[in-house]
């Protein structure tokens, strides 16, 4: 190709009008703000701060502070519980990320009979009580009650009262989170850049790794953080599928409940404090990611 061809001067930059939020002034606005602040304070801030405060407070004559808190958290039962929670959450998030991205692509990029039904089905874990989910898993996979009980017994594979069951229950309750983040982004960006990549010679796999995945990257990360937060905090479904005894399927949330009921409140508050810290961390990550998301365009 020879000399460059002179190009027209560029105009046509799209001007996006800054979105303006109408700022309201007047007595009503202040009343509304006060109501919201009070509501959040009494419902969220105060109770959570009490937990944090109790975690550091002296209990039953023992001194408070960071040292005793650390001691309670490094108790072997607590270490086991957090270890189990992190293991379960890790696998649940990995499974939901892989399937979540796959299902999102299926929902957005393909038209097939039953697509709407599938979309509704994915929201089911959000609307069904986790306890019911736990119960359903027990009914299906336990060796005594389960539909495949005999098969499971024969293979020696334990699901219920074992880590696989906990992972399944946790994956179930956090199933929609990645999908609900990724689907809108896929819908918004459309299919053109993937098609363009294919016209340039990329096969489906290359188009996915080089084009689709970088495009939905922040949505996936956001979904992963939400899933992780949900998985770490899961209680109801886990309660049903786990034995929930010390060193035997006791996750962090079960530990809190067990210790609290055993009048060992100090240990319960300490573990609760860690869950609060993890939740705040997740919120910080999400807040840091949000602006980046809007920069993508």
């Amino acid at each position: 190709m020879a000399d460059a061809i002179p190009t027209p001067l560029d105009g046509g930059v799209l001007h996006e009008a800054p979105r303006r939020v109408r700022s309201r002034r007047g007595p009503l606005a202040y009343v509304l703000r006060a109501v919201v602040v009070l509501y959040l304070f009494f419902l969220v801030v105060w109770p959570v701060s009490v937990v944090v405060q109790r975690a550091f407070a002296p209990v039953d004559g023992k001194p408070g502070g960071i040292g005793p808190l650390w001691e309670r958290l490094t108790d072997p039962a607590a270490i086991y519980a957090f270890n189990l929670t992190l293991t379960i959450s890790f696998w649940a998030v990995v499974i939901n990320t892989i399937f979540g991205v796959g299902i999102s692509l299926l929902l957005v990029r393909h038209r097939f009979p039953g697509r709407r039904a599938l979309s509704v089905l994915i929201d089911l874990p959000m609307s069904v009580s986790p306890v019911v989910i736990g119960l359903a898993l027990v009914l299906t996979y336990s060796t005594s009650l389960g539909l495949f009980g005999d098969v499971l017994q024969a293979t020696g594979l334990r699901i219920i009262n074992s880590t696989p069951g906990l992972i399944m229950a946790t994956a179930f309750v956090s199933l929609p989170l990645v999908i609900r983040e990724v689907v809108p982004v896929l819908e918004e960006v459309g299919e053109d850049s993937e098609t363009a990549a294919k016209s340039l010679g990329a096969n489906g796999w290359q188009a996915f790794w080089r084009i689709t995945l970088p495009t939905i990257k922040w949505a996936v990360v956001y979904g992963v953080v939400l899933s992780a937060a949900r998985a770490i905090g899961e209680y109801g479904a886990v309660r049903i599928v786990s034995r929930g005894a010390e060193f035997n399927g006791e996750t962090a949330t079960l530990l809190i409940q067990n210790e609290y009921q055993a009048f060992n409140e100090a240990a319960a508050y300490a573990a609760a404090f860690v869950l609060v810290v993890l939740a705040v961390l997740a919120l910080v990550v999400v807040t840091v990611l949000r602006p980046q998301e809007s920069h993508r365009s």
Partner: peptide, 13 residues
């Protein structure tokens, strides 16, 4: 074939 789309289909990243 080279294909050019109405809405550019730029690889934004």
């Amino acid at each position: 074939v080279g294909f050019v789309f109405q809405h550019y289909a730029a690889f934004k990243h």
